[in-house]
Structure formats: structure tokens, C-alpha cells
Computed example of a mutant assay.
Amino acid sequence: MATAAEDPELEGEEVESGEDEAASVSYPLTVPYCGICTLPIEYCEFTADYEKCKEWWKVNEPDSYTRVIEQGAADLSLDAGGKKGRQTRGGKALKKTKKKEVEKRVTVARASRGKRKYVTIIAGLTSLEIDLKKAAKMFGSRFASGSSVTGPDEITIQGDVNYDLIDFVQEKWPEITDDVIEDIGDQKISKR
């Protein structure tokens, strides 16, 4: 069966659209738009001004208002819970978890890199929420040597700079006190 879109002679006449649907549709379709949110009235319930839209419907589109409200009431009666839940924009919120209290401890060690060469390893700065990349850059500038982040909580500085590192760290980050920082002496360097 031809539709109004395919046959211009059928425009304005009621056309049956298929075997499964018993409802007839008249073409061209007229879609009522809400005067408040400017959306088709079926979509007003998804806007923030739904109550204002309902008031506008009562005055300007009373037949569609009763149809939509009755359909909504039927949907509510079919729900097992009886309450229609609306999801807020952004989905379900993540529950805030308490951060585990991590022991604030910074260690400084010296490791042999060969017969006479050493590197200084400082670990534990992330427990004090210090950015490791920025800290490595500062150490490299301060001690005129190479410095890099070598682990998830470890910075390696080329050279034996233990003597001045502890004072520099305490000067740069005052929250690192003598109780928090510890020099653990010589350490074996791990092979990767």
C-alpha cells in the first residue's frame, strides 16, 4: 500500500500503514510542540521545566495533556515498585571512599653504580603528595646532575649528594621534618 510520502495524491487522506498496526495515520503529520521548552510534548518530561510544561499543556493542548498523563499513570501502575525513578544527569554517583592513612616516610639511600660511582635514591615523596617529575627536575637543577623518576615512588639522582639532599628537601617542602625523613645509608642497586 502506498504512503503519502510516495504518492502526493494521498496527502491529507488517512492511510493504513501495515498489517500489524490497526491505527490509521493522517498525513502530513502535525506534531504539537511545547511553548515552554520548544520540544515535542512527548519529550517535555525529560526537561527541567516539566511542571511549567504541564501547566502550558492544560491551557493550550488539553487533549494531548490528558492522553500523556493517562499513559504515564498506566506506566506507573505497571511498575512493580510503584514509584517511577528518574535518573539524574551524569548517571550514578561513585561512593566516596576514605583514603587509607599511609605512613609518611621519606628515605634517602646511596647505591653503588660501579667501583667509584654512586647514585642517590630518594623514596616516599608520594606519601606527602609531592609530584615526582617536578621534584626530579628540581634535584637535577640543584645538584647539576641527571635525575629521573625510576619507580612508582622513587627518584634516582646521579652522584653522591646525600650530604645536601636532606637539607634541600626540608627547605623546599617544610612538611618534611626530621621525624619524616631518614638516611638509610648504602644500598645495593637492583638489576632490572
Rank of each mutant, 00 (worst) to 15 (best):
A2W: 03
T3F: 11
A5L: 10
A5D: 08
A5E: 11
E6G: 04
E9C: 03
E11Q: 11
G12F: 03
E13F: 12
V15C: 12
S17Y: 05
D20G: 10
E21H: 08
E21M: 11
E21D: 14
A23W: 02
L29R: 07
G35D: 13
G35S: 13
I36Q: 12
I36F: 01
P40V: 03
E42W: 06
Y43E: 15
T47I: 08
Y50C: 02
Y50G: 04
E51W: 02
K52W: 01
C53A: 09
K54E: 10
W57R: 12
E61I: 01
E61S: 09
P62R: 04
D63S: 12
Y65S: 11
T66V: 11
R67P: 00
I69R: 14
Q71Y: 11
Q71T: 14
D75A: 06
D75V: 00
S77M: 09
A80F: 07
A80K: 14
A80R: 12
K84S: 08
K84Q: 12
G85A: 12
R86V: 12
Q87R: 14
Q87V: 13
T88F: 11
R89D: 03
G90S: 08
G91N: 04
G91M: 05
K92C: 06
A93G: 09
L94R: 06
K96V: 14
T97R: 07
K98V: 12
K98F: 07
K98E: 14
K98T: 13
K99Y: 03
K99G: 10
K100R: 12
K100Q: 07
E101C: 01
E103H: 06
E103D: 13
K104P: 01
R105M: 06
V108R: 05
V108A: 12
A109Q: 12
R110Y: 04
A111D: 01
A111H: 05
K115F: 07
V119G: 01
V119K: 02
I121E: 09
I122A: 07
A123S: 15
A123W: 00
G124R: 00
S127A: 15
L128T: 04
K133L: 09
A135P: 01
S141C: 04
R142S: 05
S148W: 04
S148N: 09
T150Y: 06
P152H: 09
P152E: 13
D153R: 02
E154D: 03
I155Y: 10
T156G: 02
I157F: 02
Y163W: 05
L165T: 02
F168Q: 05
E171P: 00
W173R: 03
T177D: 13
D178T: 11
D179W: 03
I184Q: 10
G185S: 13
G185F: 04
G185Q: 07
G185V: 01
Q187F: 00
S190Y: 05
